[in-house]
Design a protein around this nucleic acid. Structure first.
Lengths: 146, 146
DNA sequence: GTGGATCGTTGGCGCGACCAACAAGTGGGT
DNA sequence: ACCCACTTGTTGGTCGCGCCAACGATCCAC
């Protein structure tokens, strides 16, 4: 039952395991999102808006670690579907204040369910205690490099 | 340049942590590889060749989980720099038997050192015992989805 | 032989993570 | 009041990685 034909040099490397697991996670999440016409950037932006309230695109960029140019595209797509609204900031006419709509909030909740399902599928072979441990260790790694 | 406070919805999600950690790993590895003009596919192919001996491109594709078309490009690049040799299989003229050269072996060893350094930098905040645990859990996840 | 499979190769796709440049707008210093 | 430095949104790229479709050439079973 061993499909792990990968070279031994790779099989034990944390960076390779991390990439493989992340690729699997990405596949699960993307499949779920694609079924409702969404992608990861959409979730990131909607989640940021829902948590911190209306923000300019530059703020969204900084907060979410997304490039300004990529925010433009994602906001375009979200606005096109009515999940978000763009309005020029009267106090600073360079800025677009982006606001999540009710439909956007509902969409976000839907994406949350999809995402939760993906986590379960991803971590299936791990116990609840192990999942916590994994999250803790990954969190420390991520925080350390920031 | 950094997300000083990603949304809580994301911060705790295994899939997001996995992607963030993997991105960091990728950055570390790529930076090291780029310094010697290599990329990840190169290492994968060279490691496979060194461990299992000469193989056709289709074999390399299957063994390394790399698409046939991507093997073509990587073998081109490796052959151009003398790390690998292509020869038509006389027993089956469809096949190219790819062989690692001595220069290729040396290159691989160099890449191994680079890679080892990247692992250390990546896992800096984790103890030796924790690293083993992490590798174990990730391994189970990867194996489960294969 | 003929048909079906396999091999290398070309060319393409989409996503995510970037970067450079620009016009419009803002604010501080003088 | 003016200029300069900076920010913001936007356009238009680059690169790597993971894929997929199709083609001519070759091989193998029948």
């Amino acid at each position: 039952m061993e499909m792990t034909g990968a070279p031994a040099r790779l099989r034990g490397r944390p960076s390779w395991l991390l990439n493989s697991a992340a690729l699997q996670a990405t596949r699960l999440v993307n499949d779920g999102f694609a079924a409702v016409g969404a992608r990861r950037y959409h979730y990131k932006l909607l989640a940021t808006l829902e948590e911190f309230g209306p923000a300019s695109q530059a703020d969204l960029s900084r907060r979410g670690g997304v490039d300004r140019s990529d925010v433009v595209a994602a906001v375009n797509e979200l606005a096109e579907r009515g999940f978000v609204e763009r309005a020029v900031d009267p106090a600073d006419r360079r800025r677009n204040i982006v606001t999540i709509t009710e439909a956007g909030t509902r969409h976000l909740e839907h994406l949350d369910e999809v995402l939760a399902g993906a986590q379960d599928a991803l971590l299936a072979p791990l116990s609840a205690a192990e999942r916590e441990e994994l999250v803790g260790m990954l969190g420390r790694i991520v925080e350390h490099h920031s």
